[in-house]
Design a protein around this nucleic acid. Structure first.
Lengths: 214, 214
DNA sequence: TCCGGGTTCAAACGCCTGTTTGAATTGGAA
DNA sequence: TTCCAATTCAAACAGGCGTTTGAACCCGGA
């Protein structure tokens, strides 16, 4: 593979990450990608064996980027108090609301997949060694009663991420007319506080019998 | 309009509700609908002025069906304790996990829309007098501190529904291999308990300064 | 210089989408 | 019965989709 070949590969991947994050996999066409990347139609099939192959590589890239990052890095999170770790994680999941860097795009892509997983993604999670939910599970576990079943912890983790994802996916909708939420740093901080505080206050109660007002 | 004409209208609407609930609006084609309804291709355009027009009528039907139902009926919910009302609401949102009746299909349709709102839906919520979120807002308000801003209450309501929707949309995914969740009455009851207890335990803390372990 | 594999390219393919067409059929009113 | 509007129907349309094709191009090595 010569140098210019890798150049177009990178152009394609860069454009694909941006578009997959913005619109999701299904609603992004290969013509969208090649137009943004300024390459030929057939380039995607030549270099990645089709749209699915490209998405598989992009997903791998996103997963590696996310697991090596502080937001879901197990070692760093364990050095924080459980409240700090949870708040940190939630704030990380909400990052696409404010920033458009690579990390935000990766998170946004997974937010789309949590809405309607594609075939490529399902195959990806089936073959990947560690679940991309394990970070969330580890965090909620620190709040759940010690004897909580694994299944309940998994559900709690899914619910936690579901709360973040709905805002990430519908950012533009909530910014507009019936809602008029100003998506700025102040708002995202407040939102992260809200989600984190509900989880912090509520998770310890999931097994207990008495769940009256605190 | 003669009688057989209304007959095919009803056939189309019935098939459309089932398919929109199962796959969402975008992934359901008019050919899917006419095949299931056993009517001609052009019938949808003749009776509803296109796929969008059909969806608009179906959305209206679903919204009316939901707001008149016990699960989100304001009067009935107010007669319950706030804990009972919240638990009732969450269980109602999770109904599509177990049952395939009309109510479940309506809820499932809105769960898809919460993932990626269609143009028709956005126009629908913009013109509808009462938000379909108002029931959720009313419930979370009963837990939030009295001086909570309307925006925070709205966010809490969205987060609450986001937790339910992610399970409704991905029911089949979670039932399969990496997760293996048995979606039966026992499981759904436990899940509703989990979501409700987290909210009950956590919502009162969203404004307070001290949010340490309970 | 010429060759040949790697890469790019314009064009087309086959399929699916929502919609339109215009003729055939139906069924109640005159 | 006759008529006419409402309804049904098979067929086609225009456009988007992912993918394939085969020729053109580039460029290092013989």
């Amino acid at each position: 593979m010569t140098r210019p070949a890798e150049h177009t590969r990178n152009l394609i991947i860069k454009a694909a990450v941006a578009l997959f994050a913005e619109k999701g996999f299904e609603r992004t066409s290969v013509r969208d990608i090649v137009t943004k990347a300024r390459v030929n139609q057939a380039a995607i099939n030549y270099h990645f064996k089709g749209k699915d192959g490209l998405y598989a590589e992009v997903l791998k890239l996103a997963f590696d980027g996310l697991t090596k990052n502080a937001g879901v890095d197990a070692a760093e999170l364990k050095s924080l108090s459980r409240e700090q770790a949870l708040r940190h994680f939630v704030r990380h999941q909400l990052r696409p609301l404010l920033f458009k860097d690579e990390m935000s795009r990766y998170i946004h892509m997974f937010a789309w997949e949590s809405a309607h997983p594609s075939k490529v993604f399902r195959k990806f999670v089936a073959t990947s060694t560690t679940s991309y939910l394990s970070a969330a599970v580890d965090i909620v576990r620190r709040f759940l009663p010690p004897d909580t079943e694994e299944r309940a912890a998994l559900c709690a983790a899914i619910a936690l991420m579901g709360q973040c994802n709905v805002f990430v996916r519908n950012r533009d909708l909530f910014a507009q007319d019936p809602f008029r939420m100003p998506i700025d740093e102040r708002f995202v901080d407040d939102l992260a506080d809200l989600i984190a505080k509900v989880a912090i206050g509520g998770l310890p109660h999931v097994n207990g019998a008495g769940v009256e007002t605190a």
